[in-house]
């Protein structure tokens, strides 16, 4: 056996071992998800008393009872509420954060460094610190416990249109700073205004970072529970995360099958979004200096 063949075999073995290790680690990481999906087809009284991956009995009841939802509001309504909330949140964040980031990344204005520092400080401020002040503010606006269901969503959605998610502003600022200023100057010579530069030059080139912003906003809003709990008190305004929690009651019987069945369905939107936008998402992360 010559040296090259030996090297090829060794390389092959090494590659196989590497893949084997990755597959095993992947399976370990996926185990909870696989368990969830398998258990969503088990009868309620076997989910915790028989925890194996091979069910002794199969049922679709969990999907039926889970879809019935909570307090006469179907789980489909929770999906609609969550999707609408996420769409508004994504649009709000993309709209406001790109504008704020453009200002910080390209424009000159007085005390720019101070405002940037204040924005960065707000990233470091734990969200819990602002919970009560925020609630007091929105309560003063009449946005809490309102009979008009739409108004109840404002405390969650309205701030998104004011670029309060400083993390995304920072991410976009980093990206915009990486774009060559020559393009702006060329556009200015061609007669482009500041607004024109934003829409014609900066926005198209910032697409990967915008996609990252949109994706993260969607996933974080979809998964958020605490804000939705605080501001959405009527079951017909509940979202998916609240609907899932409503199946579990320590003081009475819990519909664990429903939780697992609806959790399985709740994964689908994030799953589809992530994989369809993965290309942009990875580029956005890799080119902003924020290594995921």
């Amino acid at each position: 056996m010559d040296v090259n063949t030996k090297r090829r075999i060794l390389g092959g073995v090494r590659l196989t071992l590497t893949h084997l290790v990755i597959i095993v680690i992947g399976l370990v990481m996926l185990y909870p998800v696989i368990w969830m999906i398998v258990s969503s087809f088990k009868p309620n009284n076997m989910i915790f008393s028989d925890t194996s991956l091979i069910p002794k009995a199969l049922t679709l009841d969990n999907y039926v009872t889970g879809w019935k939802g909570y307090a006469n509001v179907s789980f489909g309504q929770f999906f609609i509420n969550s999707i609408l909330l996420c769409v508004f949140a994504v649009v709000g964040n993309v709209f406001s954060c790109t504008l704020a980031a453009y200002a910080f990344g390209r424009l000159k204005f007085s005390l720019k460094w101070l405002w940037f520092a204040v924005m960065m400080l707000s990233v470091m401020l734990p969200a819990h610190v602002t919970t009560i002040p925020r609630y007091l503010l929105f309560n003063a606006f009449g946005w809490t416990s309102s009979k008009d269901v739409i108004v109840n969503y404002l405390p969650i959605v309205a701030p998104k249109f004011l670029a309060v998610d400083a993390f995304f502003v920072f991410l976009l600022v980093q990206f915009i700073r990486g774009l060559p200023k020559d393009l702006d100057e060329a556009a200015t010579i061609d007669g482009c205004s500041r607004t024109g530069i934003f829409f014609r030059i900066v926005l198209p080139l910032t697409t990967p970072a915008i996609v990252t912003t949109a994706l993260f906003t969607f996933i974080w809003t979809w998964d958020d529970f605490f804000n939705q709990l605080l501001y959405l008190s009527s079951p017909n305004t509940f979202t998916v995360s609240m609907g899932l929690r409503s199946f579990v009651d320590n003081s009475a019987s819990s519909n664990w099958g429903g939780v697992l069945a609806m959790s399985t369905l709740a994964m689908i939107p994030s799953f589809i979004l992530f994989f369809s936008l993965q290309k942009y998402f990875v580029r956005g992360i890799a080119t902003t200096g924020i290594k995921g």
Partner: peptide, 10 residues
């Protein structure tokens, strides 16, 4: 204001 599962709400 109260807590509970679907059965309790009904």
């Amino acid at each position: 204001a109260y807590w509970g599962n679907d059965d309790r709400v009904q």
